[in-house]
Amino acid sequence: MVTHNDPAAEHGFGHSPVAKTILATLASLGGLFCIGIVTGITTAGLEKGSLSIRAGLIGTACLVIGVLLFWQAFRMIRGIFAEPVGKSTRRARMLTVVSLALGVAIGIMLSVGESGRSPLVSGDDISPTVAVILAVCALVVVPVLTLVWFRALDEHEAAAYSIGALVALNCNIALTAAWWVLAKGGLATPVEAMPIFLMTMVVWSAVWIWKRYF
Protein backbone atom coordinates (compact mmCIF):
# COMPACT_ATOMS: atom_id res chain seq x y z
CA MET A 1 0.00 0.00 0.00
CA VAL A 2 1.60 3.24 -1.07
CA THR A 3 -0.45 6.00 0.46
CA HIS A 4 0.29 8.71 2.95
CA ASN A 5 -0.78 6.10 5.52
CA ASP A 6 2.16 3.88 4.66
CA PRO A 7 4.11 3.73 7.93
CA ALA A 8 7.46 3.51 6.19
CA ALA A 9 6.68 6.68 4.26
CA GLU A 10 6.52 8.77 7.42
CA HIS A 11 9.89 8.08 8.96
CA GLY A 12 12.06 10.29 6.76
CA PHE A 13 13.42 13.63 7.97
CA GLY A 14 11.50 15.38 5.20
CA HIS A 15 8.19 14.52 6.86
CA SER A 16 8.81 16.36 10.11
CA PRO A 17 7.38 19.87 10.51
CA VAL A 18 10.88 21.22 11.18
CA ALA A 19 12.20 19.72 7.95
CA LYS A 20 9.19 21.03 6.07
CA THR A 21 9.72 24.48 7.56
CA ILE A 22 13.44 24.45 6.63
CA LEU A 23 12.68 23.25 3.10
CA ALA A 24 9.86 25.78 2.74
CA THR A 25 12.21 28.55 3.88
CA LEU A 26 14.89 27.43 1.40
CA ALA A 27 12.29 27.20 -1.38
CA SER A 28 11.03 30.70 -0.52
CA LEU A 29 14.58 32.09 -0.55
CA GLY A 30 15.19 30.39 -3.90
CA GLY A 31 11.91 31.84 -5.18
CA LEU A 32 12.88 35.31 -4.00
CA PHE A 33 16.28 34.94 -5.69
CA CYS A 34 14.60 33.98 -8.97
CA ILE A 35 12.09 36.82 -8.75
CA GLY A 36 15.00 39.16 -8.03
CA ILE A 37 16.66 38.06 -11.27
CA VAL A 38 13.38 38.57 -13.17
CA THR A 39 13.04 42.05 -11.65
CA GLY A 40 16.62 42.90 -12.61
CA ILE A 41 16.15 41.71 -16.20
CA THR A 42 12.81 43.54 -16.51
CA THR A 43 14.26 46.77 -15.12
CA ALA A 44 17.23 46.55 -17.47
CA GLY A 45 14.89 45.87 -20.37
CA LEU A 46 12.72 48.87 -19.51
CA GLU A 47 15.77 51.15 -19.16
CA LYS A 48 17.24 50.00 -22.50
CA GLY A 49 13.89 49.84 -24.22
CA SER A 50 14.64 46.34 -25.56
CA LEU A 51 15.37 42.86 -24.29
CA SER A 52 17.69 40.26 -25.87
CA ILE A 53 16.33 36.78 -26.57
CA ARG A 54 18.87 35.31 -24.14
CA ALA A 55 17.83 37.66 -21.34
CA GLY A 56 14.19 36.98 -22.11
CA LEU A 57 14.73 33.22 -21.92
CA ILE A 58 16.66 33.48 -18.65
CA GLY A 59 13.98 35.77 -17.21
CA THR A 60 11.20 33.41 -18.27
CA ALA A 61 13.05 30.38 -16.84
CA CYS A 62 13.66 32.22 -13.56
CA LEU A 63 10.03 33.27 -13.39
CA VAL A 64 8.85 29.69 -13.91
CA ILE A 65 11.37 28.29 -11.39
CA GLY A 66 10.51 31.03 -8.89
CA VAL A 67 6.78 30.39 -9.15
CA LEU A 68 7.38 26.63 -8.75
CA LEU A 69 9.56 27.21 -5.69
CA PHE A 70 6.94 29.47 -4.11
CA TRP A 71 4.28 26.85 -4.89
CA GLN A 72 6.40 24.15 -3.22
CA ALA A 73 6.93 26.38 -0.17
CA PHE A 74 3.19 27.03 0.02
CA ARG A 75 2.42 23.30 -0.21
CA MET A 76 4.91 22.45 2.53
CA ILE A 77 3.55 25.07 4.92
CA ARG A 78 -0.01 24.03 4.09
CA GLY A 79 1.00 20.40 4.77
CA ILE A 80 2.16 21.29 8.28
CA PHE A 81 -1.16 22.90 9.16
CA ALA A 82 -3.24 20.27 7.33
CA GLU A 83 -2.04 17.48 9.63
CA PRO A 84 -4.66 16.43 12.15
CA VAL A 85 -3.56 17.40 15.64
CA GLY A 86 -4.91 16.79 19.12
CA LYS A 87 -6.14 19.51 21.46
CA SER A 88 -2.93 19.65 23.50
CA THR A 89 -0.69 19.67 20.43
CA ARG A 90 -2.71 22.55 18.93
CA ARG A 91 -2.43 24.45 22.21
CA ALA A 92 1.33 23.82 22.40
CA ARG A 93 1.77 25.01 18.81
CA MET A 94 -0.26 28.15 19.49
CA LEU A 95 1.86 28.91 22.55
CA THR A 96 5.00 28.34 20.47
CA VAL A 97 3.76 30.96 18.00
CA VAL A 98 3.04 33.36 20.90
CA SER A 99 6.56 32.70 22.26
CA LEU A 100 8.08 33.37 18.85
CA ALA A 101 6.16 36.65 18.61
CA LEU A 102 7.41 37.59 22.09
CA GLY A 103 10.95 36.66 21.03
CA VAL A 104 10.69 38.92 17.99
CA ALA A 105 9.39 41.77 20.19
CA ILE A 106 12.27 41.27 22.66
CA GLY A 107 14.73 41.14 19.76
CA ILE A 108 13.38 44.45 18.41
CA MET A 109 13.66 46.05 21.87
CA LEU A 110 17.20 44.73 22.25
CA SER A 111 18.15 46.20 18.89
CA VAL A 112 17.46 49.74 20.12
CA GLY A 113 20.26 51.16 22.26
CA GLU A 114 20.50 54.58 23.87
CA SER A 115 22.49 55.95 20.95
CA GLY A 116 20.32 54.24 18.38
CA ARG A 117 22.75 51.34 17.90
CA SER A 118 22.05 47.76 18.91
CA PRO A 119 23.38 46.95 22.41
CA LEU A 120 23.92 43.39 21.22
CA VAL A 121 26.39 44.49 18.56
CA SER A 122 27.84 47.76 19.85
CA GLY A 123 27.82 47.05 23.59
CA ASP A 124 25.74 50.22 24.16
CA ASP A 125 23.63 50.50 27.29
CA ILE A 126 19.92 49.73 27.14
CA SER A 127 17.55 52.53 28.14
CA PRO A 128 16.15 52.05 31.69
CA THR A 129 12.57 51.77 30.40
CA VAL A 130 13.46 49.01 27.95
CA ALA A 131 15.60 47.33 30.62
CA VAL A 132 12.66 47.22 33.05
CA ILE A 133 10.30 45.85 30.37
CA LEU A 134 12.82 43.14 29.40
CA ALA A 135 13.49 42.25 33.05
CA VAL A 136 9.74 41.82 33.67
CA CYS A 137 9.59 39.63 30.56
CA ALA A 138 12.49 37.50 31.82
CA LEU A 139 11.18 37.22 35.37
CA VAL A 140 7.43 36.90 34.82
CA VAL A 141 6.20 36.60 31.24
CA VAL A 142 8.70 34.03 29.95
CA PRO A 143 8.48 31.68 32.99
CA VAL A 144 4.65 31.79 32.99
CA LEU A 145 4.51 31.23 29.24
CA THR A 146 7.04 28.38 29.53
CA LEU A 147 5.05 26.73 32.32
CA VAL A 148 1.76 26.94 30.41
CA TRP A 149 3.48 25.65 27.26
CA PHE A 150 5.22 22.83 29.13
CA ARG A 151 1.89 21.66 30.55
CA ALA A 152 0.44 21.51 27.04
CA LEU A 153 3.28 19.33 25.72
CA ASP A 154 2.90 15.62 25.12
CA GLU A 155 5.17 13.37 27.15
CA HIS A 156 7.62 12.81 24.30
CA GLU A 157 8.36 16.49 23.78
CA ALA A 158 8.34 17.14 27.53
CA ALA A 159 11.00 14.43 27.89
CA ALA A 160 13.05 15.92 25.02
CA TYR A 161 12.86 19.38 26.63
CA SER A 162 13.79 17.96 30.05
CA ILE A 163 16.76 15.96 28.76
CA GLY A 164 17.96 19.09 26.92
CA ALA A 165 17.66 21.06 30.18
CA LEU A 166 19.63 18.41 32.08
CA VAL A 167 22.46 18.33 29.53
CA ALA A 168 22.54 22.14 29.34
CA LEU A 169 22.61 22.48 33.13
CA ASN A 170 25.56 20.07 33.36
CA CYS A 171 27.40 21.93 30.59
CA ASN A 172 26.68 25.21 32.39
CA ILE A 173 28.03 23.88 35.71
CA ALA A 174 31.12 22.34 34.11
CA LEU A 175 32.01 25.41 32.04
CA THR A 176 31.33 27.91 34.84
CA ALA A 177 33.39 25.90 37.35
CA ALA A 178 36.29 25.35 34.94
CA TRP A 179 36.33 29.01 33.83
CA TRP A 180 36.16 30.30 37.44
CA VAL A 181 39.01 28.04 38.56
CA LEU A 182 41.14 29.04 35.56
CA ALA A 183 40.38 32.72 36.25
CA LYS A 184 41.40 32.26 39.90
CA GLY A 185 44.61 30.63 38.70
CA GLY A 186 45.33 33.66 36.54
CA LEU A 187 44.95 31.67 33.34
CA ALA A 188 41.69 33.22 32.09
CA THR A 189 39.65 36.40 32.26
CA PRO A 190 36.94 36.64 34.95
CA VAL A 191 33.81 34.58 34.29
CA GLU A 192 31.34 36.32 31.98
CA ALA A 193 27.67 35.50 32.20
CA MET A 194 26.59 36.08 28.60
CA PRO A 195 28.81 33.52 26.78
CA ILE A 196 27.82 30.85 29.31
CA PHE A 197 24.15 31.84 29.00
CA LEU A 198 24.31 31.58 25.22
CA MET A 199 26.15 28.25 25.35
CA THR A 200 23.51 26.90 27.75
CA MET A 201 20.68 27.97 25.43
CA VAL A 202 22.38 26.51 22.35
CA VAL A 203 23.07 23.14 24.04
CA TRP A 204 19.53 23.02 25.47
CA SER A 205 17.93 23.77 22.09
CA ALA A 206 20.21 21.38 20.18
CA VAL A 207 19.52 18.41 22.49
CA TRP A 208 15.81 19.22 22.62
CA ILE A 209 15.49 19.35 18.83
CA TRP A 210 17.64 16.24 18.45
CA LYS A 211 15.55 14.19 20.87
CA ARG A 212 12.30 15.49 19.43
CA TYR A 213 12.88 15.17 15.71
CA PHE A 214 15.65 12.61 15.11
Partner: peptide, 19 residues
Amino acid sequence: QWSQAELGARLDVSRQAVN
Protein backbone atom coordinates in the same frame (compact mmCIF):
# COMPACT_ATOMS: atom_id res chain seq x y z
CA GLN B 1 -5.03 3.07 7.49
CA TRP B 2 -4.28 5.89 9.92
CA SER B 3 -1.37 8.23 9.42
CA GLN B 4 0.92 8.94 12.36
CA ALA B 5 -0.65 12.38 12.62
CA GLU B 6 -4.14 10.87 12.72
CA LEU B 7 -3.15 8.45 15.46
CA GLY B 8 -1.42 11.27 17.32
CA ALA B 9 -4.60 13.36 17.16
CA ARG B 10 -6.66 10.45 18.49
CA LEU B 11 -4.21 9.97 21.37
CA ASP B 12 -3.71 13.72 21.88
CA VAL B 13 0.03 13.48 21.27
CA SER B 14 2.16 14.81 18.43
CA ARG B 15 3.05 12.93 15.25
CA GLN B 16 6.65 12.88 16.49
CA ALA B 17 5.57 11.12 19.67
CA VAL B 18 3.81 8.40 17.66
CA ASN B 19 6.88 8.01 15.46
